[in-house]
């Protein structure tokens, strides 16, 4: 066995199928996308090479700038809900409260429902006429706060960000909880004997030990929020008047509706660069060293 796996050729043979699939479905499309982003093309007539013109136009495109801003808001919203808030929930359940398994399932449930169904449900909740939210507001005597939530350019995006926060808080909580459960209970026993309170235990034991997982989780959260598509597509389609447009929905719009595939590809490249930057950023913030006790 050792002989086979020591041989570089045989390693190559085993890696090759996966590498071919990866190349065909990931590397080649990325390369092709970068190439297309330098063209003005509808993919039907021959394209024209225009260099970086598409990128130049992106910077001047108000809708794209708006979409970029919306994505930043989405990242901030997701980070708040999926790091501190998820950690808080995870930590509460970690304390072996009664029915913690039940709550774990309840929190996790929204993230297994398909995005379109979640979008439809919340569209009904936000509905201006028969929506649950407006009904609750009028029931508690704050009918003056009622609004056409998804049709108002000031609230549409915030409403969607809230749904994203709600939908995935359980998912990240479970990841973080799993990391917490990996920590040996002996640390906590020792800490308790030494008189450390719950907060101290959390900051000095839990947090440092789950930091590697938090780093991975932060990358998932940020890239997920940058690439976000389905809820916006279902709930508002980027409207009203592009108020809730994200980069991904705008990319779809420019590609499949206006047939500006070159321009659309340029948005894709920007998205890719932002995702790479975000990985670098979270590596920088969380540092490389690992805690070990």
């Amino acid at each position: 066995m050792k002989k086979i796996f020591g041989n570089k050729k045989s390693i190559a043979v085993f890696v090759l199928p996966a590498f071919i699939i990866y190349s065909v479905f990931v590397l080649f499309p990325i390369g092709y996308n970068i190439y297309v982003s330098l063209l003005r093309t509808d993919l039907m007539s021959p394209g024209r090479f225009i260099g970086l013109k598409n990128y130049e136009n992106l910077l001047k495109d108000k809708v794209f700038v708006k979409a970029l801003g919306n994505n930043v808001l989405m990242v901030i919203g997701s980070l708040i809900a999926h790091l501190p808030l998820a950690l808080l929930f995870g930590n509460i359940l970690f304390q072996k409260v009664k029915g913690s398994h039940f709550f774990q399932t309840v929190f996790f449930l929204p993230s297994v429902i398909c995005g379109v169904a979640v979008g439809m449900t919340w569209t009904f909740i936000y509905n201006s006429e028969f929506g649950l939210l407006n009904k609750i507001l009028s029931a508690i005597g704050r009918g003056d706060l009622q609004s056409a939530w998804l049709a108002d350019k000031n609230t549409a995006l915030l409403c969607i960000v809230f749904v994203v926060m709600w939908q995935f808080v359980g998912y990240h909580m479970v990841i973080q909880l799993a990391a917490m459960k990996n920590i040996s209970p002996s640390y906590y026993e020792a800490a308790e004997i030494d008189g450390a309170g719950k907060w101290k235990q959390f900051t000095s034991i839990t947090l440092p030990l789950i930091k590697p997982i938090l780093k991975v989780d932060a990358v998932l959260i940020i890239t997920g929020a940058l690439k976000y598509y389905d809820l916006v597509a279902v709930m508002t389609g980027g409207g009203p008047n592009h108020a809730s447009e994200l980069m991904s929905t705008y990319m779809f719009y420019q590609g499949f509706r206006t047939l500006k595939y070159g321009y659309s590809a340029a948005i894709g490249v920007v998205l890719l660069l932002l995702c790479i930057c975000s990985v670098a950023l979270s590596n920088f913030v969380f540092g490389k060293e690992q805690a070990d006790y």
């Binding site: 108000k62 108002d152 350019k153 409207g239 009203p240 008047n241 719009y253 509706r257 047939l259």
Partner: peptide, 28 residues
């Protein structure tokens, strides 16, 4: 005009109904 000026015309009309100034919206 298809999905370009055509869709933007539609968006402009909704923006005006949503409270934006008509002149400014059509200038945009």
């Amino acid at each position: 005009y298809g999905a370009e000026e055509g869709t933007e015309f539609n968006n402009t009309c909704v923006a005006v109904l949503g409270g934006e100034d008509a002149q400014e919206a059509f200038d945009a």
